[in-house]
């Protein structure tokens, strides 16, 4: 790693001020950023740790909306999101236990890895990304591979999840990394079904609208019979071809619907 200055502010305001310096970078749990720094793929002048900000830690539930602090770890969400079991279950299978004790929801969403789990939950739930300066709907937030609507120095302070009637996340695990080779989050709300797919597309997480329409009419695995996603634009690597991933999207969506009941 190149040397940098480390600061650990206690409030969001102090963190925003610390990030105003050129080449300053926010640090969530560091489970992606620290390996990136070790490879010298980034050279921040200053790391601003968000782990000491109490106001970004909590998980609260009110009126069918679950609000999770941006610095909440995956382990904290797994233990604390009881009112949204599909989300707790998703959090409990990210990485491994030690990674879950450090990695944070805000860090994962800010990084927007195309194979990460949380983007599927946020997009699939129609969550709201709350930052130090505004609120961003999930549909506007994810903008492609590692790209988000966040501005320079903007911090995810919380994520608000509307709790669906039924939901489930199915992850086909890439066994070496434990990221999703393909992961599908299905959520049924009173006004319709949302389906979000991670791990599959070269553009990052996306909504499978055709499946949403079919499932909104009939929330059953059979409703997806005959539907498929185009292999064009899917990720191809040594773990799976475009066609394989496209096939998995339909399979994992069916499994998620079946598991959601």
């Amino acid at each position: 790693m190149y040397e940098f200055e480390f600061v650990k502010p206690a409030t969001v305001g102090e963190a925003v001020a610390a990030l105003a310096e050129e080449d300053a970078q926010a640090l969530g749990g560091g489970q992606t950023l620290i390996p990136t720094l070790k490879q010298r793929l980034a050279m921040p002048s200053r790391l601003v740790s968000l782990s000491g900000i109490t106001e970004m830690q909590g998980i609260s539930d009110s009126g069918g909306v679950l609000t999770i602090g941006g610095a909440a770890t995956h382990a904290a969400v797994a233990a604390g999101a009881a009112s949204y079991p599909a989300l707790a279950e998703l959090a409990s299978h990210i990485g491994d236990p030690a990674v879950r004790n450090r990695g944070t929801i805000g860090g994962s969403l800010a990084n927007n890895d195309p194979a990460a789990c949380y983007p599927a939950a946020a997009l699939g739930s129609g969550a709201t990304i709350v930052t130090n300066s505004r609120e961003i709907e999930a549909d506007d937030y994810f903008q492609g591979l590692f790209e988000t609507a966040l501005e320079e120095g903007e911090i995810i302070t919380a994520v608000r999840f509307p709790v669906p009637e039924k939901a489930n996340y199915q992850k086909f695990v890439q066994p070496a990394s434990r990221f999703a080779l393909v992961g599908v989050f299905v959520a049924r709300f009173a006004d319709g079904v949302r389906v979000a797919v991670t791990g599959a597309s070269e553009e990052g997480v996306f909504r499978w609208r055709e499946a949403e329409a079919a499932l909104s009419a009939n929330f059953a695995p059979d409703a997806l019979d005959g539907l498929s996603v185009d292999a064009e634009g899917m990720i191809a690597d040594l773990h799976g071809s475009k066609e394989y991933r496209a096939h998995l999207v339909a399979v994992m969506t069916k499994r998620a619907v079946a598991a959601a009941g």
Binding site: F6, I34, P35, K38, A75, P97, A98, N101, R102
Partner: peptide
């Protein structure tokens, strides 16, 4: 491995298992 995969570096910080090769010393202050 020094890439947070192998877990040989696991220690407990405030009672929680973490990979000490993927946590800055100052975070444990």
């Amino acid at each position: 491995c020094d890439t947070s995969q192998c877990g040989a570096c696991v220690v407990h910080v405030d009672g929680k298992a973490v990979k000490s090769c993927t946590m800055l010393a100052q975070e444990a202050d």
